[in-house]
């Protein structure tokens, strides 16, 4: 299934770019995920606990960053598998400066397999969007907590 959308985050583009690739920040922002563990260049091990309605499942997988085009775009690939099936998100994130922050546009696909694919297709679109929204909401909280704000001097 294709997904696309955009979110605004309140830090300048270069900072946004760095935050979106920071495994600590990513790990804390991804719903159901605690931490990412580096296993290679731009490649991290991920454990995710997905809780949605009465459904819950543990996913074990990887987060990868590819096609990095500093400060303007990169590809984020999230893959996980567990007892209830597997899922794969692949999105090209494109960053553009705004007056008060950065517009992050994403375009990609979400695929699921196994039992969740059998019963989840009617909900895949709406729940994917919710999870992406939660990711950006959490990211904003992270940003607020770290004291970053739009236009602040960049710590390199």
């Amino acid at each position: 299934m294709k997904i696309s959308g955009a979110h605004v985050i309140s830090v300048p583009q270069e900072r946004a770019y760095a935050l979106l690739q920071d495994p600590a920040v990513l790990g804390r922002s991804m719903p159901g995920c605690d931490a990412l563990e580096k296993i290679g260049e731009n490649e991290y091990h991920m454990k995710m606990k997905m809780v949605l309605a009465s459904m819950n499942g543990l996913f074990d997988g990887k987060v990868r960053i590819t096609d990095a085009n500093p400060f303007s775009s990169f590809r984020l690939i999230v893959e996980g598998a567990g007892k209830i099936g597997f899922m794969r998100g692949n999105g090209l994130l494109t960053l553009a400066p705004l007056e008060n922050g950065t517009n992050v546009q994403y375009e990609g696909s979400v695929e699921v397999g196994g039992t969740i694919a059998a019963v989840g297709q009617r909900l895949l679109d709406t729940t994917s969007r919710m999870l992406i929204k939660r990711f950006f909401d959490k990211l904003s909280t992270e940003i607020a907590a770290s004291g970053d704000k739009a236009g602040s001097a960049l710590p390199a």
Binding site: E111, V112, G113, G114, A117, A118, V119, Q121, R122
Partner: peptide, 14 residues
């Protein structure tokens, strides 16, 4: 079936 061979209409609910 989706492009990956997952059956999307695989229960009476779909």
């Amino acid at each position: 079936y989706d492009d990956n061979g997952q059956l999307l209409t695989g229960e009476f609910t779909d």
